[in-house]
Design a protein around this nucleic acid. Structure first.
Length: 419
RNA sequence: GGAGAGGUGUCCGAGUGGUCUAUGGUGCCGCUCUCGAAAAGCGGUGUUGCUUUCGGCAACCGUGGGUUCGAAUCCCACCCUCUCCGCCA
């Protein structure tokens, strides 16, 4: 959420920023509602002050004059109707505010789609094979470690079953990534709920705008998380963090659930895009002046997973048109997958500045006795499964159809080859 | 799911219709005393909105309604926590 004060004081800055995303928002409507709101508040507060004084006086009197009581009855009615008007106004205002995306960071390249993203760097050599590398669906089916048909039988399209060393490979990757981020990068592991309340989805920015991508339990109004970013953002919702306590680094494994209704018909083959997938997520709560640097460090933390697995990748900076709703600036990490012959997104790291903090009311006190300020939040995949499973299978495949296990996973897998 | 108890500021805890402008303690900050510290004493110490004469005004006692001239206090609904019972991994 953007600061209403910022919109009021500098609407052109907000308009320009929205233009960089190719979006328009109802700024004029917001400004009008804000003006009405402030007028109504002044009016009702004047009446309240009057009533307060009168009530105090009445309390002292022996004989309560009926005329005064009647007048105050009337004032009470006015207050009530103004209160209703104000809450209607604020509801409308809030709803508009909650649908405006974050400001765009000045360093973000101009552009409309993925062709305008900018490659920042790349790492590792793209592997060459003296045989035709297979896509992961063939490798997985041949080895009996991915079962598409039974996934569909159980749950429908875009579901699959991992089996044997396939299931174990995914589990090994999760354990490896969690251990790496905890022991080498200073993150604290958390295991959050996978189903959350409506307010939690509002705080992280997924509601109200993106309801159509979420699974929802009607009976208890619980929502399935599309990413660990959702519960982890809300760890510190409505808190004022003590001076000196920031930064907080969290790493969380969760399953993620997405309808993917926007991508119908896209990536239907294989396990690249399912309705349920696993992810290890990095998340930071930091002081505002550090968030630019913290983003670079987070990307490096995610990259180190790729490096330790010895999987070639490239880092892209997203252009304005590709930025997510919450993000002011984002980097994507893409791994080369030779079977599918494409760059596959395995991570997206974003600085959300105070956008989520304002929605979720997460503040910190810079110094003892100072006013609380909104923190900055950052999130990034570290990394997303099963896409890393795809990358391992396709990059480590061998001519006989087996798959070598990357060095760092061998102790987790208890084997050096999947056959 | 059933029964009971409870939710007040950093924390503990008082307050059952009107000087509540929320008692008291604790923590924290400052000052006095001291070579310094402790102790003691004194003063200060929440969040938000509106206004900007910088001084005010208003809201906030789990949440939302209601009653009343006036609600932390009375009424209704809901949420959460604790204890016991039932069920269960």
């Amino acid at each position: 959420m953007l600061s209403l004060q910022l919109i009021r004081q500098n609407p052109d800055l907000v308009r320009d920023s929205l233009a960089k995303r190719g979006e328009a928002a109802a700024l004029d409507e917001i400004l009008r509602l804000d003006e009405d709101r402030r007028r109504l508040i002044q009016e009702v507060e004047g009446l309240r002050a009057k009533r307060r004084q009168a009530s105090k006086d009445i309390g002292q009197m022996k004989d309560k004059p009926e005329a005064l009581l009647a007048e105050m009855r009337d004032t009470g009615g006015q207050i009530k109707s103004l209160d209703h008007e104000i809450s209607r106004n604020e509801e409308g205002l809030n709803d508009l505010l909650l649908r405006i995306p974050n400001l765009v960071h000045p360093s973000v390249p101009v552009g409309r789609d993925e062709s305008d993203n900018v490659m920042v760097r790349s790492w590792g050599e793209v592997r060459t094979f003296d045989f035709e590398p297979l896509p992961h669906w063939d490798i997985g089916t041949n080895l009996g470690i991915i079962d598409f048909e039974r996934g569909v039988k159980i749950s429908g399209s875009r579901f699959y079953v991992l089996r044997g060393l396939g299931a174990k490979l995914q589990r090994a990757l999760i354990a490896f990534m969690l251990d790496l981020h905890v022991s080498e990068h200073g993150y604290t592991e958390v295991y959050p709920p996978f189903m959350v309340k409506r307010e939690t989805m509002l705080g992280s920015g997924n509601l109200p705008k993106f309801a159509d991508n979420l699974y929802h339990d009607e009976e208890d109004d619980l929502w399935f998380v599309p990413t660990a970013e959702v519960p982890v953002t809300n760890l510190h919702r409505d808190e004022i963090l003590e001076p000196g306590s920031l930064p907080f680094y969290y790493v969380a494994y969760t399953a993620c659930f997405r309808r993917e209704s926007m991508s119908a018909g896209k990536d239907t083959r294989g396990i690249k895009r399912g309705h349920q997938f696993d992810k290890v997520e990095l998340y930071k709560f930091v002081e505002p002046h550090t968030s630019d640097d913290e983003l670079e460090i987070m990307v490096a933390d995610a990259e180190s997973v790729c490096q330790k697995l010895d999987l070639p990748y490239r880092v892209l900076q997203l252009c304005g048109g590709e930025l997510g709703f919450n993000a002011t600036k984002s980097y994507d990490i893409e791994m080369w997958v030779p079977g599918c012959a494409e760059w596959l997104e395995v991570s997206s790291c974003s600085n959300c500045i105070d956008f989520q903090a304002r929605r979720a009311n997460i503040r910190y006190r810079p110094q003892q006795g100072e006013k609380p300020q909104f923190v900055h939040t950052l999130n990034g995949s570290g990394l997303a499964l099963p896409r890393v499973v795809i990358a391992v299978l396709e990059n480590y495949q061998q001519p006989d159809g087996s798959v070598a296990v990357p060095e760092v996973l061998r102790s987790y897998m208890g084997t050096d080859v999947i056959r």
